[in-house]
């Protein structure tokens, strides 16, 4: 049991690279094998992925208000050059 916990800790440092797909293949195999056996680590990986996803999706919906852009262009003396 204790041995298993250490294994989790050791592998968990790689999950960031794992979700980015930039993990080295050897480690990837090892991690995926571990994930198939360890519910806890699987939850950590899934919720980590989801965390990044939600941030990306929410941010993609945020647009700069048009008056902010108008003031920026005015400040740069570019207001007459918009298409």
């Amino acid at each position: 049991m204790e041995k298993n916990k250490n294994h989790c800790e050791e592998l968990i440092t790689s999950i960031s690279e794992y979700v980015d797909g930039s993990i080295n293949p050897q480690l990837c195999l090892e991690l995926e094998k571990h994930l198939s056996e360890c519910d806890n680590c699987r939850v950590v990986v899934n919720t980590l992925k989801k965390t990044i996803d939600i941030y990306r999706q929410q941010s993609a919906r945020e647009k700069m208000p048009s008056d902010v852009k108008n003031r920026l262009l005015a400040r740069l003396h570019l207001e007459d050059y918009r298409e």
């Binding site: 945020e62 700069m64 852009k69 920026l72 740069l76 003396h77 570019l78 918009r82």
Partner: peptide, 22 residues
């Protein structure tokens, strides 16, 4: 060139504003 400067603003102002807001 002000036309090109305006294009620069159009292209990147959203990202820069979002970054600053975060």
């Amino acid at each position: 060139d002000p036309n090109e400067q305006t294009r620069l603003v159009e292209l990147y102002s959203d990202c820069i504003y979002r970054l600053a807001l975060k």
